[in-house]
Write a protein that binds this DNA or RNA. Structure first.
Lengths: 195, 195
DNA sequence: GTCTATACGATGATAGAC
DNA sequence: GTCTATCATCGTATAGAC
């Protein structure tokens, strides 16, 4: 198939998103200028508008992609047999997945307030879909007597907040490995659920 | 005592900080201009510089005040007799205190990256001091056998992340009261600690 | 203590050359 | 597909009148 001479769009597009993600994570959406992103990619500011209609949409696309990735990866995870095993599996999945993309996690959580109303509603919906996956596990476990939980909605929010924490402080080569963190957090979640 | 005619500094200073806190919480530090803060207070932008040397210091003062307030309030809380009672007490204190000032909590957590190096170090030190209060409780409980915890440092971070969560979603008049949320979270923390 | 006026650089986004 | 040039606006911060 013929390729246009001098066209770099297939590579520049992803590089724009990668640079924006890294800069937004480090300095915050509002503090990063289109010129900074362009400089990081090695193009002029005007060229960015070949890849995004505006700065807001660039942020939204990063966040939607992240949420889609989480949901897709979780959907591809085999369903464990018991509520207890499913909760253990969810906790480990969440930590592992989020530890691998700290920048996307950070941006998706911190920059919600910089989305306009329509974009916010979309991201919020995806986030709720993910939370509902965990809440379903907790409800099953509560119903079967496997968990001792007074409020599955609150437990859902509490567990996700807890499990997302390591994303903010984990450093490769630190005191604990990913696997150790995964073990410790999974155990704390099972305990908190009264399993 | 004589008062200067036309002087409002005793009232305008706090109003500047209150407006800045509200706007920073809603839109983010970088997204808020000094002109917006001034408009909220009802003065011109230039007048703000009578109350703060610059925007960065305004943010820092808000955060330092918040951290000082947390530490002071916790220090004034009576020390419960057992590790289990102390953990219960800490969990309830943390939720109650943070639920009463969601804007300060939000800003103090989200805007850390907008502090310059020296200011960041100061706030970070205060935050660690607070975390150490919780970790000491967990260590005592682990040593006495009251808690079953594999890593007190991780548990400290996990519990604080969990207990701060309600600040982000609690609304007066919602499904659950403050007291109910306090009860449920305290119970989950005690469970997670293996108490 | 607050105002008006202003310095001066940076911002997001667009137009048109190549 | 990318560049240069440009627009109108807004950013923080300061100076000096009152």
């Amino acid at each position: 198939m013929a390729r246009k001479t001098g066209s770099h769009s297939e590579i520049t597009g992803p590089r724009v998103r990668a640079a924006a993600l890294a800069l937004f994570a480090r300095h915050g959406f509002a503090a990063v200028s289109m010129r900074q992103i362009a400089a990081e990619v090695g193009v002029q500011a005007g060229a960015l508008y070949l890849y995004t209609p505006d700065k807001q949409t660039l942020l939204f696309d990063l966040m939607r992609t992240h949420m889609d990735d989480v949901l897709t990866a979780w959907a591809a995870t085999p369903k464990a047999p018991t509520p207890r095993a499913r909760l253990d599996c969810f906790a480990r999945f969440h930590i592992r997945f989020h530890l691998d993309r700290p920048e996307a996690v950070f941006v998706s959580y911190m920059e919600l307030r910089n989305l306009d109303a329509a974009n916010f509603a979309t991201i919020e919906g995806l986030r709720r879909t993910y939370e509902t996956e965990l809440e379903a596990i907790l409800q099953e476990g509560k119903a079967s007597g496997a968990f001792s939980l007074s409020d599955t909605k609150l437990a859902t929010l509490a567990f996700i907040a807890m499990l997302t924490g390591p994303t903010n402080w984990f450093r490769e080569g630190g005191r604990l490995s990913r696997a150790e963190i995964e073990d410790i957090y999974a155990q704390m979640v099972l305990n908190a659920a009264g399993a």
